[in-house]
């Protein structure tokens, strides 16, 4: 589904990613772990197509197409979803209105008819239930005045509504207490499926107790330095990143 090869990325002239190679197949959940400043969010943004992230070398192929040539909204329509670490507020625009516009834009791209209000509300109710998002939050302005936990639940609710092929979750656990974390993780797990790939970016192993990954990568200084199974995450939690860093540096 997603094939990243030797990806180098610069931000403001500074090289952040220094040759990432990654292969995620449909149905797989990959976790990327790493200390602050290792380039985790950069990877998420460059996959989603944010401006200001310059690819200097390497390639990204998504469903056989060159992902890097697509506009962000085309990537979204093709099924790439980014769960933001810091979701922004859009005052005055109701969550539900926003999502209906987004969903129908994506459906249009796929050659499907727009969902009418009734079908949309039905779908919304079902998906909001996944992450126990209160009805009133779907009607409030997008992320406006939401608590940290509400914002993250809202991201997963949006993901459930948009049914992406590739979900990139950027530090979805940050700012969540343990109960909220469980709710969010359950929502994510409910969306796992043979057709869907996920890339879960996190700082802590904690999240991976609930969203159990198939593969774990350790990202340090813009490079993937280790790849393993879920036990690698546990080892990191125990020994810390410095151990790994020391091990790879001569």
């Amino acid at each position: 589904m997603l094939k990243i090869e030797d990806l180098h990325v610069e931000v403001d002239g500074k090289t952040i990613l220094k040759g990432i190679t990654l292969d995620i197949a449909a149905g797989e959940v990959h976790a990327i772990m790493g200390p602050n400043g290792s380039g985790k969010s950069t990877l998420a943004y460059v996959l989603a197509g944010r401006e200001g992230y310059e690819v200097t070398k390497g390639s990204v192929t998504y469903k056989g197409q060159n992902l890097l040539e697509m506009e962000p909204e085309i990537r979204a329509a093709e099924g790439v979803f980014l769960g933001f670490q810091y979701p922004v507020a859009i005052p005055g625009v109701s969550n539900i209105y926003f999502l209906k516009a987004a969903l129908n834009a994506i459906r249009k791209h796929r050659g499907q008819d727009p969902l009418d209000a009734i079908d949309f509300m039905k779908l919304s109710k079902e998906k909001a239930g996944l992450v126990q998002l209160p009805d009133q939050l779907t009607k409030r302005s997008v992320n406006d005045g939401f608590s940290g936990g509400e914002k993250k639940r809202n991201e997963i609710y949006q993901m459930a509504m948009l049914e992406p092929s590739l979900a990139i979750l950027d530090e979805t656990d940050s700012g969540l207490d343990i109960d909220a974390l469980k709710v969010v993780a359950e929502g994510v797990n409910a969306l796992r499926g043979p057709e869907r790939a996920m890339l879960v970016i996190t700082h802590y192993q904690r999240l991976l107790d609930y969203i159990v990954p198939d593969v774990v990568h350790v990202l340090i200084d813009g490079r993937i330095v280790r790849t393993g199974d879920k036990n690698l995450a546990k080892q990191l939690e125990r020994d810390g990143y410095s151990e790994v860093r020391d091990a790879i540096q001569p």
Partner: peptide, 12 residues
């Protein structure tokens, strides 16, 4: 950031 958020959700 607002614009990117919208575009990431599929809006032109």
């Amino acid at each position: 950031d607002q614009l990117f958020y919208c575009r990431q959700r599929g809006l032109a």
